[in-house]
Each structure stands twice: as C-alpha cells, then as structure tokens.
Design a protein around this nucleic acid. Structure first.
Lengths: 165, 165
DNA sequence: GCATATATGTCAATAACACTGACTTAATTA
DNA sequence: TAATTAAGTCAGTGTTATTGACATATATGC
C-alpha cells in the first residue's frame, strides 16, 4: 500500500481489530444494506414511490394507530417532508387516518388492507434474504448479529424494549 | 395486534423466524446504519460535502489508483453524478488524478495527504463504534456478524476475496 | 492505417427527498 | 381565557441522483 503514514499509522498492530478490518465491516454493512433495498426499490418504482414511502409504510405497519408526531420522531424528518409522502399514501388508499378517540387533534395512522398488501410485497425479498442468512449462519450467529448491531446503535435499550413485545 | 389476516397470516407459527422477528432485524439494520453515519454527516457539513463525497473518499481510500470506471461500478451511479462530487474533491485537493501509466486515457484516483486526513476524521467515530461493538460482543460474535451479513448480500464471494487481501 | 471501441468529461433538463421559515386551524391544557 | 400542542400548508432552496446527447483522447482489431 502506498498510503502515507497518516493512514497506515495504525496506533498498534497489537490492537484487536485493525483499521482495515473495521473498514471491511463498514463496507459489509453498506453492501448488505444496498442489496436489501434493491428489490423493494424496484417494486416502489411501479407505484412511482420512493424509499421515503417504504419507510412510512414500514413504520406505520409496525405501529398501528401511530400519531404523526411519533412517526416524525422515528423518521427524524420534518413535517413538510413527511407531508408529501404521507398525503400521497393516504390519497391512494394505502394508509388511513383516524381521528384520535381521546385527543381529537390527532390523526392516528394505520395501513389499509391495500397498505398491508404492499408492505407484504415490499418486505418479501428482505424477509427471505434475512431468513436464509439466519438459517445458513445458525441460531448462535443470529444472537451474535443482534448483539453486535445493538452495541453499534444509540438507543439500543429502547429498541430492545420495543422489539421484546 | 390488530392487523388484518394478510399480515398475521404467518404461514406457520412453527417456522424458525417469524415475520415480526425478521422485521425487527431490518429495523436493527436501519437504525444502526443511521447511527453509524450520523457523526460523519456532521463533519461533512463543515466542508459543505454530503454522503456522496464520503462514499467517494472511502472507496478511493481503500482502492488507491482505482479508475473512474471501476469506482462507478462500485458506487452504481452515473458518470454525471460522480462528476460533480469528484471534481469538487479534486478541486479542493482531497483526491488526485494521475494519468494511467499503461492506458493514458485512464485517470487513476487516489487520496492526497489532505484526503487521508479527512477520511481518518470521517471514519473515526465509525471505527470506534464498531470496535466497541465487537469487543462487547466477543470474538465469536464478530465472526457470526460477518457470516450473517455475507449471507444477506449478493456478491459475497467477491467481497470475501477483496477483504481477504 | 483506418474504423471502432473505450475511458473520461461536459452540457442541459428533470426528479426525489430532504431542508428552513412562516403561517393557519382546531383542540387541549394550565 | 391564554398558552400550548397536533396537524397541515405555502413558498423557496439544496443535494443527489437520473436521462440524453455529445466531445475528446487514446487504444485496439483487422
């Protein structure tokens, strides 16, 4: 490698994981993420939808009767950004908005039958991919996979709590 | 869950991994990916760069003397999309282009000293995150993590070959 | 040596998805 | 009643991608 010393200056070759190994891990995440969204991307195109629509469909599907505010906090986008996507999904009857029974300002979001069907379609290849990856790697590997990713992210406690239900 | 039957119709509760478990895995990837790019995103902003610049810096850093064509095939974007980002990075002296010694049409790309410094900066938090996730999960978990992600992606053989060098 | 193919770069128009800022409306809460 | 909250809208902007059409220099096949 003809990289200058700043790069190869690895602090210590005695360290557990080399910088290059860590960069490998990052690429692995990059490539597997890319391959995971490839098929849904193709399906979305048929509807003239984009990834933003997929994310909304996914999180509304997993959190029936979610409020707009809560959805915004998960997606971490602005109201205006969500608006375009969400109003399209409502207009085309993939998502329905119901007035909150307690707080009538709220518009509780949920998937319609049509929305569930699209979600099923969009996630099919992803579920197949993950299943086959889990099966091929074995059950201990699945736990390890969860452990590593949870350690990588910020609010892992919150996630575990949600996923545990 | 009050989802209609299309959703909860899980084919079989005897299956190894439930649809909800698989959707958990997808969210886990989504959230950890998002947290991984958070810090680099903030650094890029100081330079008025975006994620596209980061990707170029990363892959040029890992593949010194890469050709434009090869870089395009890794990134899977068009020449025109790369052009804007790459010419900026060259103009600001993060990347240098050298005429190919054999094929003089080629412009071999590599990071300058300044480019390596930026790459180091951008990847620091990511490397720290991954290291700590690996350490906390233990060495067997790291192998399992690789195994699962490799099984999820398309050209895993190609990746393993590259990463193995 | 000439025709063809390849590597790179550029101009122009368009689209998806995000942003900021400034408001409005309706309903809840202090 | 006043202030706050939930949701939505209008207008303008920026980044990153796209397609299509060309231009230039170099390499390669016959």
């Amino acid at each position: 490698m003809d990289a200058p010393t700043t790069r190869t200056d690895n602090k210590a070759s005695t360290e557990l994981y080399s910088d290059e190994e860590l960069r490998d891990a990052m690429e692995l995440l990059f490539f597997s993420y890319r391959d995971l969204i490839r098929e849904p991307d193709a399906i979305l195109e048929e509807y003239n939808f984009g990834r933003a629509h997929h994310r909304v469909i996914h999180f509304v599907g997993r959190n029936p009767d979610i409020t707009v505010t809560h959805l915004l906090s998960i997606l971490r986008i602005t109201k205006q950004s969500l608006s375009r996507v969400l109003s399209q999904l409502v207009r085309e009857n993939f998502i329905q908005q119901l007035e909150g029974p307690i707080d009538r300002r709220q518009r509780l979001l949920s998937l319609t039958q049509k929305g569930y069907e699209l979600e099923d379609d969009l996630s099919r290849d992803q579920r197949n991919r993950i299943t086959s990856a889990f099966v091929r790697a074995g059950p201990e590997a699945v736990n390890a996979f969860y452990k590593v990713l949870l350690n990588m992210m910020n609010n892992s406690e919150e996630f575990k709590q949600r996923a545990g239900t």
